[in-house]
Amino acid sequence: MARIKLPTVLRPHVGGSAVVEVEGRTVGEVFTALVERYPSLEPQLGGDGGLPVFVNVFLDDEDIRYLDGLDTPVDDDAEITILPAVAGG
């Protein structure tokens, strides 16, 4: 089961948890299972329109945009981190 680490802004949608665990063979399947369980997350994650530019998803420490996107395979012990886009400098 993949562990999904959620940013503060998304935690109210899952009852306050920082981490939730869901099944899925790819990042896309994990997200589908996630929004089935917590439907109010769906618009935050872009619905069916793919990953919005202001959402960053890391599988372990790698941005999935530079892997296979939502088709990126997920191991059972994978950690998926969702982060908002934040500027620095």
Partner: peptide, 29 residues
């Protein structure tokens, strides 16, 4: 980003206009 609490939604995030994600080959957290 892990400690930022002020955003109301993920869409409140900010992607700098000069930053083009397609010009990267990878991004490590």
């Amino acid at each position: 980003g892990e400690t930022i609490a002020g955003l109301r939604t993920l869409a409140d995030g900010y992607v700098p206009p000069i930053f083009d994600p397609t010009a990267l080959d990878g991004r490590l957290l």
